[in-house]
Design a protein around this nucleic acid. Structure first.
Length: 356
DNA sequence: CGCATTTGACCCCG
DNA sequence: CGGGGTCAAATGCG
């Protein structure tokens, strides 16, 4: 399918651009007296970016060399993760009796791809994160060592459309304004970006509950989305399964969103294990993400990018609020409280060129 | 009344 | 055995 080829191209472009931007940042960081951690982090991200570009290049070709290249990437920072993907579903339930009381058993959910992003909200106002999908909370857990409980969400249309996307939301320990959102799986439902904005995301509501006074001061700034906030605090982590990376990229755009569950499944797997979509998940950066300050890329625009219908479908646009207020330093100290392990950034940064 | 959230119990895995 | 993820009854809300 040539559309997928087009994706590869765009993704490649994105990765390269990203690498460039990161390199610039590193340069900045070098001239400023920033911590070596920061630099290392940047280096890591640059490496990751190119690594992904390599992956993309090899996507339709032999994947071995790519794997080798990745293996050669020094740090453990690179996520060399091969998730328990397909076989989690295929593996025969070792005890059939489980099938009978499946209800109680924990579903053997494949841990497709994790896509972790940390979303910070200014002063803890509102949840800045709206990904264009509606989520339904199905659980909450106190996590050992974490101050705040973790919330579990799944796609509202899980049953109706076999959309197995889930996400976890957890408030950061040190900085309660930061939310760590872990996505698992991709949406196969068709309720994403076609429509307007969905109802407020659950975590947003949660935040509202927690602090429901300051909803007033959110300046509707007309987002200069493309300006790169140096102190943006968004980390993304991709856990890619290289095997799946090498697998054929075969779903059709037309069947997307209305395919049979199995197909949806497969396609979501494939989808999850490459970064194509994520590359188009453009992070729109809102300096002051107020409650209603969500900026979605119009589907049409998304389609332009991808040259494919599917994009609009999956074009969940991730809106990230810059953490301008909480990290006031002009120098990107980066402030990555995250353990740098396994962080695979995906910063679409300035992709203006692609859009225009 | 239907849908979403809450919350304690349940289950799996390390 | 404990932690993390999920289920599902109870509850809340529009």
């Amino acid at each position: 399918m040539d559309s997928s080829k087009s994706w590869e191209h765009k993704s490649l472009l994105t990765e390269i651009i990203e690498g460039m931007e990161l390199a610039k940042q590193l340069r900045l960081s070098l001239s400023a007296a920033s911590s070596s951690d920061t630099r290392q982090f940047l280096v890591q991200r640059i490496l990751s970016s190119y690594e992904k570009a390599l992956l993309i290049l090899n996507f339709s070709g032999p994947a071995q060399s790519t794997a080798g290249a990745i293996a050669s990437v020094p740090e453990s920072l690179v996520s060399a993760y091969a998730g328990p993907c397909f076989d989690d579903y295929n593996k025969s339930p070792k005890d059939h009796q489980d099938l009978t009381d499946v209800s109680k058993k924990r579903k053997i959910m494949a841990k497709w791809t994790d896509h972790v992003m940390r979303v910070s909200s200014e002063n803890g106002i509102e949840g800045p994160h709206e990904d264009g999908h509606s989520w339904r909370k199905y659980g909450q857990k106190d996590i050992l060592g974490a101050k705040h409980p973790r919330s579990y969400y799944r796609c509202t249309y899980r049953n109706t459309q076999s959309c197995y996307a889930t996400k976890q939301v957890q408030r950061s320990d040190e900085d309660p304004t930061i939310f760590e959102i872990t996505y698992k799986g991709k949406h196969t439902c068709s309720h994403g970006s076609n429509s307007v904005l969905p109802p407020p995301s659950p975590e947003q509501q949660e935040q509202k509950r927690n602090k429901q006074n300051n909803t007033s001061h959110q300046q509707q700034s007309q987002v200069n989305q493309m300006s790169f906030p140096t102190n943006l605090r968004v980390d993304t982590k991709f856990l890619e399964d290289r095997e799946n990376m090498a697998s054929p990229f075969s779903f059709t755009s037309t069947s997307f969103g209305c395919m049979m569950p199995d197909d949806a499944f497969l396609s979501s797997m494939l989808d999850d294990n490459n970064t194509f979509f994520d590359n188009f998940n453009h992070s729109l950066l809102s300096p002051a993400a107020g409650e209603s300050n969500y900026y979605l890329m119009p589907p049409s625009q998304m389609r332009n990018i991808a040259g494919n219908e599917q994009l609009s479908e999956c074009g969940l646009t991730e809106i990230i609020s810059a953490n301008n207020s909480s990290t006031n330093s002009p120098i990107p100290d980066m402030d990555f409280p995250l353990d740098p392990v396994e962080i695979e950034p995906n910063f679409p940064f300035d992709t203006t060129g692609i859009f225009s």
